[in-house]
Amino acid sequence: MRKSLMRLTLRQLQIFRAVCEHRSYSRAAEEMALTQPAVSLQIRQLEELLGQPLFEYIGKKLYLTDAAQALKQAGEDILDRLGSLDMQLSDLQGSLQGQLTLAVESSAQYFMPHLFAAFKRQHPEVGLQLTVVNRAQVIKRLNDNRDDLVIMALVPQDMALEFLPFLNNPIVAVAPPEHPLCRAAKLSLQDLQPYPLLVREPGSGTRKACEEYFQQKRAHFAQTLEVTSLDAMRECAIAGLGLAILPRHAVSQQLAQGALLELPVEELPLYRSWCAVHARGKHLSPVAQAFLAFIRDERAQISALARRFADAAHPSAG
Rank of each mutant, 00 (worst) to 15 (best):
M6C: 06
R7K: 14
L8G: 04
T9Q: 08
T9C: 04
L10C: 04
L10S: 11
L10F: 14
R11I: 09
R11F: 09
R11H: 09
Q12T: 07
Q12D: 13
F16P: 00
F16R: 02
F16M: 00
F16T: 03
R17Q: 14
A18R: 05
V19A: 03
V19L: 06
E21Q: 15
E21A: 15
H22E: 15
H22T: 15
S24V: 04
Y25E: 04
S26C: 01
R27T: 09
A29F: 11
E30Y: 05
M32N: 03
M32E: 13
M32I: 02
Q36M: 12
Q36W: 03
A38K: 11
A38T: 15
A38M: 09
A38P: 07
V39N: 07
S40C: 06
S40T: 13
L41N: 05
L41G: 00
L41F: 14
Q42N: 12
I43C: 04
Q45K: 13
Q45P: 00
L46G: 05
E47G: 03
E47W: 04
L50A: 06
G51N: 07
P53M: 10
L54G: 05
F55N: 09
E56K: 14
E56M: 12
E56N: 10
E56I: 15
Y57W: 08
Y57L: 13
Y57N: 08
G59T: 07
K61V: 08
K61Q: 14
L62K: 09
Y63D: 01
Y63R: 11
T65E: 11
T65W: 09
D66R: 15
A67D: 00
A67W: 02
A67E: 13
Q69I: 14
Q69V: 13
L71M: 07
K72E: 15
K72A: 08
Q73C: 00
G75K: 03
G75M: 05
G75E: 05
E76W: 12
E76A: 13
E76M: 13
D77I: 11
D77F: 10
I78E: 14
I78F: 12
L79C: 10
D80R: 14
L82M: 12
G83N: 11
L85D: 06
D86I: 07
D86Q: 12
M87W: 00
M87G: 08
Q88P: 01
Q88D: 10
L89F: 01
S90E: 09
S90L: 00
S90P: 01
D91G: 04
D91I: 01
L92N: 09
L92H: 11
L92C: 09
Q93M: 10
Q93Y: 06
Q93I: 05
Q93L: 12
S95T: 13
S95Y: 05
L96A: 00
Q97H: 13
Q97C: 10
T101D: 11
T101W: 01
L102G: 00
L102K: 07
L102D: 01
A103W: 01
A103Q: 05
V104T: 11
E105M: 03
E105S: 11
E105A: 10
S106R: 14
S106N: 14
S107N: 07
A108N: 05
A108F: 08
A108I: 04
Q109I: 02
Y110A: 11
Y110S: 10
